[in-house]
Design a protein around this nucleic acid. Structure first.
Lengths: 144, 144
DNA sequence: TTGAAATTGATAAACCGTATCAATATCATA
DNA sequence: TATGATATTGATACGGTTTATCAATTTCAA
């Protein structure tokens, strides 16, 4: 973790410093695990990290993932009854096409749409830091 | 209600007939209230209808809004920790600009973006039934 | 090294939506 | 219109997800 995610680690420590928060073993551990994924739920991470640290509590994972959201490293997305925490770095400019029948997810990128989003934001006096675009429907297989 | 929402009433009764379901006083009442809004939560409707019918149960409202989804009159959308039921008739109006500092939400609609979304979906063999577009950033007041 | 303050783990509680079930309302049929 | 099979309702228990609580522990500035 230490050598591969220097940038994200810096983003986190800067956020911590700015808000009088502390860097803990658990936060480092969770950050390392989080950055390895594109998106994950708190529950999934709980099971995944049980091997590394059997005493790591679920509440700590929720708290930490929410902290990552505050720090701008993660983004919470409510899907069904659960919350997915998206890795901002991995996400980049990928938007999603999601099949509501088989749950298949196709990533896409569209520069024209991004541009129009900027236009909309500017017209309303907003400065965009991130966005989320999800198209729900049926994939070709499930339509039949 | 009776005279203004004839079309939606027909859609509902057709769905009811097709599935051996019955038209009840509660379903009529909830339909009338629902069609007056662009989107609403079950909880909000519960309080809103308490005046018209103090004994109307929350479970009935959930059941009925889900029924409207099945009938194609409504669409459920997970927003924050709650479920918003969108009025299909008003569809296309539920994209959002969200200020990450003050939580202000501005709704917008952009026909060009919608069109491009259709293009992307078609290229990937998808048929879109709904979508979610949220732009996160700072509003003009919070940027300063 | 010290100690004020933040964090943790365990778990209780809150929250949202669904399941259950006896009582009631609907509506096709006679 | 009256009947009765069946769908619906309201009240509430329940289940899953996330947050709040709090004593014990850890962090880190001085």
């Amino acid at each position: 973790m230490a050598t591969t995610h220097v940038k994200e680690m810096k983003t986190l420590t800067e956020h911590l410093g700015k808000h009088q928060l502390k860097l803990t073993r658990q936060r480092e551990l969770i950050l390392g695990a989080f950055l390895r994924q594109e998106h994950i739920t708190a529950e999934a991470m709980y099971h995944q990290l049980a091997k590394s640290d059997p005493h790591l509590g679920l509440a700590t994972i929720y708290r930490t993932l929410n902290l990552f959201c505050d720090a701008g490293l993660a983004q919470a997305r409510h899907f069904g009854s659960q919350t997915q925490y998206d890795n901002i770095a991995h996400k980049g400019h990928h938007d999603h096409l999601i099949c509501t029948n088989c749950q298949k997810i196709v990533e896409f990128e569209n520069e024209e749409i991004e541009q129009l989003q900027e236009d909309v934001a500017r017209k309303n006096g907003f400065t965009i830091t991130t966005h989320r675009l999800e198209l729900y429907g049926l994939c070709s297989r499930c339509r039949h």
